[in-house]
Structure formats: C-alpha cells, structure tokens
C-alpha cells in the first residue's frame, strides 16, 4: 500500500521499494520503507546509511543458524526498529545510497553555481 506523500517533502531518490524525501522546514530526511515513514536528522541519516552498508550480507547468507536470516537495526532517535531480511537490506541500500549520491550531487551543483555567479 503506497501512502500519499505530503507536498512539503521533496523527493530525493525513489525505487519500487521505497524512497527518501527532504523536508526543508525540518531540515531532515524522510525515509519511506516497508509502508512506513521515519524522519532522520542529517547526521543520523548518514550514520544509518553507514550502518546498513556495514551489515555483512555475505555472512548472513553463509550462516545456517536461524537467527542469521535477519538483521535488526535500531537507528538513534527514532522509535522504529528495522527487522531486515537480506533482500530488504539490498533494497534499503539501493534507496539510501541512491539518496546519498543525489545529495552529494546537489552539493556539487550548488558549489558550481556559486563559483559561476
């Protein structure tokens, strides 16, 4: 079920599994994933991305014990707890890294515009 995105959120990056939006009024990012939204402050968003990228997916796939099939991630300052399968992690990585790339591109473009002005 796709929830309606409020108008004040600017889309940064979107895939079929979810999206990242920027909220200019709160100076925060909104992650839409698994049919719910979580808001992150800038540094928390970057930390969360790092955390997701650091999950050892190969080890999860190799490990035959039952608990190894999922990764539990609790980002700071949110009430949400992410319970992720390997496919969730891959999908989430795509969204977060895609968003991070677009944010870095935005920084570069703004810098170029400033130097040209």
């Amino acid at each position: 079920m796709q929830t309606k995105t409020p108008q004040h959120l600017i889309e940064i990056f979107k895939t079929q599994q979810g999206a990242v939006y920027q909220c200019n009024s709160k100076n925060a990012f909104c992650l839409e994933f698994g049919n719910s939204r979580s808001f992150f402050k800038i540094s928390d968003f970057l930390n969360f991305t790092k955390k997701i990228n650091n999950i050892d997916v190969a080890e999860m796939a190799k490990n035959t014990s039952r608990h190894a099939d999922i990764a539990i991630v609790m980002p700071h300052y949110t009430e949400r707890c992410f319970v992720l399968t390997i496919t969730d992690i891959i999908a989430l990585r795509e969204i977060l890294n895609g968003a991070k790339f677009m944010l870095q591109l935005n920084s570069i473009l703004r810098e170029c515009m400033t130097s040209l002005a």
Partner: peptide, 14 residues
C-alpha cells in the same frame, strides 16, 4: 533545493 549536507558541516565525509 536546500543543501542539507553542507548545512550540517563544511567537512566532506572523506
């Protein structure tokens, strides 16, 4: 679009 990355810090991640 507002550059939130730059608003946070002047340092790049690297």
């Amino acid at each position: 679009m507002k550059d939130l990355l730059r608003l946070r810090t002047s340092l790049s991640e690297e």
